[in-house]
Structures are given as C-alpha cells and as structure tokens.
C-alpha cells in the first residue's frame, strides 16, 4: 500500500448513513463513503461508476457476495468490490478505493488511492 500522508476530514460518524453511502467533496473530486454497520466496516471508493461515467456509487445499495463486500451502481446494477475495487459483474473496469480511519468521532479518508 502507498504511504498515506493526506487525510481528509470527511464528516462526523453520525452524518454517515448506516449500511449505506454518502458522497464526500474533495476539491474537484467526489469520493463515496460507505458505513457498512452490519460488518462494522468503513469503505471509500471513487463516486463515479466507470461503466457510464455517472456520479452515483454513493447512492448505490451495498451488500456482499460470499464474503466480499460490494456496492451496486443505481444506474445499471454493475457491482464492485468495496475492498479491492474490482468489478464483480464481469467487466474489465475497476474503481479506486481509499483508506478510511475514525478518530474522535470524525471520519477521515486517505486521499491517495489504495489501488
């Protein structure tokens, strides 16, 4: 993993949506932040779905297949792994994923992508 030096204070834990996503503004960029309460896990990915280039992943439903956490784009239900960014619907495209940490009730996103 690349070294993480830039942490963006995204929002308070209570502003995130349980078992769902919100969109975080980072300059010109948009990052989707998911609070997977059921698994007690946090994930961050690019907000743009690479299939039709729509800023939509934060509005997608999350879930799992076998044990892989995933998000489904609301447009055409392409699914992506939340942990690796890999497209699980058999397409070539992958999405960027970012590290997340929680400190004193604030959610931080590392703005250098993991993948």
């Amino acid at each position: 993993m690349k070294e993480q030096s830039n942490w963006l204070a995204a929002c308070r834990v209570e502003d995130a949506i349980e078992n769902g996503g919100v969109c975080v503004k980072h300059g010109e960029e948009q990052i989707a932040l998911f609070y997977f309460t059921r698994r007690n896990e946090w994930y961050a990915t690019q907000n743009e779905c690479p299939h039709k280039k729509q800023m939509a992943l934060s509005r997608g439903m999350i879930g799992s297949t076998t044990d892989e956490p995933k998000v489904a784009c609301p447009f055409h239900k392409k699914t992506f792994s939340l942990s690796t960014g890999e497209c699980l619907s058999g397409d070539e495209c992958a999405i960027k994923t970012y590290p997340v940490k929680i400190e004193n009730g604030t959610v931080y996103i590392g703005t250098t992508p993991k993948s």
């Binding site: 997977f36 439903m61 879930g63 799992s64 995933k70 489904a72």
Partner: peptide, 10 residues
C-alpha cells in the same frame, strides 16, 4: 444470512 445484496434488499 450474511449482509444482503441489491437483489434481496428491494
């Protein structure tokens, strides 16, 4: 079981 998905949720 597990976490659900975009098929069973709606």
């Amino acid at each position: 079981k597990n976490d659900g998905c975009e098929v069973c949720k709606p």
